[in-house]
């Protein structure tokens, strides 16, 4: 994947183009979208965006890990992790788009 990397700036630019708000306000709204999703996840909620995918928070229990370099055992505390499950539509579009591009 020799692709480039998009950032908040590219998403703001798209909102600016599509919606016609100022660049400044477009950037703020992109930030709002990210903040609202993050806050919901931190509260432990699942965030389900139809035709995009689902972000869920999973609880992991404590386990004994190992430093792969030194072989030393280290305790890993119980923690919450975020997983993203892409929708069927996204999987299809990503598979299709990259297949064509790399064919």
């Amino acid at each position: 994947m020799a692709g480039k990397t998009l950032t908040r700036m590219d998403l703001s630019e798209a909102v600016f183009r599509e919606v016609g708000l100022s660049r400044n306000e477009s950037a703020q709204l992109v930030e709002t979208v990210i903040d609202l999703i993050s806050d919901a996840l931190v509260r432990g909620e699942q965030v389900k965006i139809s035709s995009f995918g689902t972000f869920s928070v999973r609880q992991k229990s404590a386990r004994i890990g190992r430093n792969p370099k030194t072989g030393e055992e280290v305790p890993i505390q119980p923690r919450r992790v975020l997983t993203f499950r892409p929708s069927h539509l996204m999987k299809e579009r990503v598979a299709e788009g990259n297949r064509k591009q790399n064919a």
């Binding site: 994947m1 020799a2 692709g3 480039k4 990397t5 998009l6 950032t7 908040r8 590219d10 998403l11 798209a14 909102v15 599509e18 919606v19 992109v30 979208v33 990210i34 965006i49 035709s51 995009f52 539509l89 996204m90 579009r93 990503v94 299709e96 788009g97 990259n98 591009q101 790399n102």
Partner: peptide
């Protein structure tokens, strides 16, 4: 637009880093 842009980027093989 937000979600569409992310999906379109990945369909092109690009990354989106937030």
């Amino acid at each position: 637009t937000f979600f569409e842009e992310v999906t379109n980027a990945m369909a092109r093989g690009d990354r989106v880093e937030l």
